[in-house]
C-alpha cells in the first residue's frame, strides 16, 4: 500500500538547514496497523505529513497504492488527499462553526457528493463511532474523546485507503485514549490500513507493528502481539 525509499527531508531556516529525515525505507501493506514511535523531535510528524502529502519530500520516492507521489500541484494533491487519505490530528482540528455531522460530511462535500447522500453517510459514520445523537452538536459542546471520535468518523467518511493519525490520543486522558484506540482497532479489523504516531508505549502496543524512529532513521521495525484496547474500556 505504502512504499517509501531512501526518503530525506530537511527544513531550511535562514542559512541553516535541519536534516530531519535521513534516508527512511519502509513499506506498509494493506490492513496493517503501524505505530510510529520515537522521542519528541525525532521526525515522526514530518514523516506522517509527507505520507499525507501535506509536505513534500526532498529526496527519495513515495508510492501510494501503486501511484507515484511526485511533483503534485496543489489541486492534484488535494484530490489525492481527498481520495486516498484520512487524517486524525492530536488537536482534533474540527471546524468549530460546523456541527458534528457537517464536519464528518466535509470530505464528501469536496468529492461533490450530493447533499442528501452526504448526510446519510455522515450519520452512518457518526453511528459507528457511537455519536449519532450528537450529530447536530457543535464541537465545543463535545468532550475531548467525543471530538476525536468525530474526527475519526470524518477521516473515515471518504473511505480512504490509508488512515493517518498523529498522536490521536495525545490530548486525551488514558481512559478516553483506550476508547479511541478501541475504535481504531475496530476500524483496522474491518481491513483498513492505519498509521499512527505516538510516543506512548502502551498505545504503540495496541498496534500490530512498531516502527521506531531516532535521529532521522528507523532504528527498529518489529511486529508485535496486539493488545486489545477493549479490555481496558
Amino acid at each position: 500500500m505504502i512504499e517509501i525509499k531512501d526518503l530525506h527531508k530537511s527544513y531550511k531556516m535562514g542559512s541553516n538547514s535541519l536534516h530531519v529525515l535521513k534516508g527512511i525505507n519502509f513499506s506498509v501493506k494493506e490492513g496493517e496497523l503501524v505505530a510510529i514511535m520515537g522521542s519528541s523531535g525525532s521526525g515522526k510528524s514530518t514523516l506522517l505529513n509527507i505520507l499525507g502529502m501535506l509536505d513534500e519530500l526532498d529526496e527519495g520516492s513515495y508510492t501510494l497504492d501503486g501511484v507515484p507521489i511526485k511533483n503534485l500541484n496543489e489541486t492534484k494533491a488535494a484530490q489525492y488527499r481527498n481520495k486516498f487519505l484520512g487524517f486524525v490530528f492530536q488537536s482534533f482540528n474540527l471546524i468549530n462553526y460546523k456541527s458534528a455531522m457537517e464536519n464528518v460530511a466535509l470530505p464528501l462535500y469536496y468529492q461533490k457528493v450530493g447533499r442528501k447522500e452526504r448526510q446519510e453517510k455522515a450519520l452512518k459514520y457518526l453511528e459507528q463511532v457511537g455519536l449519532k445523537e450528537w450529530a447536530t452538536h457543535l464541537p465545543n459542546e463535545l468532550s475531548g474523546g467525543q471530538k476525536q471520535r468525530v474526527a475519526i468518523a470524518r477521516a473515515m467518511a471518504a473511505e480512504p485507503k490509508v488512515l493517518l493519525a498523529d498522536e490521536p490520543t495525545g490530548a486525551l486522558d488514558s481512559k478516553t485514549s483506550y476508547e479511541v484506540m478501541d475504535l481504531i482497532q475496530k476500524i483496522n479489523d474491518q481491513g483498513n490500513t492505519i498509521l499512527l504516531v505516538t510516543h506512548e508505549p502502551d498505545i504503540a502496543d495496541m498496534c500490530k507493528r512498531i516502527v521506531h524512529l531516532k535521529d532521522g532513521v528507523i532504528i527498529e521495525d518489529k511486529k508485535v502481539e496486539q493488545v486489545r484496547a477493549s479490555q481496558y474500556v
Binding site: 499525507g52 488535494a78 488527499r81 481527498n82 482540528n93 471546524i95 469536496y110 470524518r154 471518504a158
Partner: peptide, 16 residues
C-alpha cells in the same frame, strides 16, 4: 488560516 489548512487536508480544491 487553520480552518483553511484543515479543509485543504481534507481535500478541498484550492480553487474552491
Amino acid at each position: 488560516t487553520k480552518e483553511i489548512g484543515i479543509r485543504r487536508a481534507l481535500g478541498e480544491d484550492p480553487w474552491s
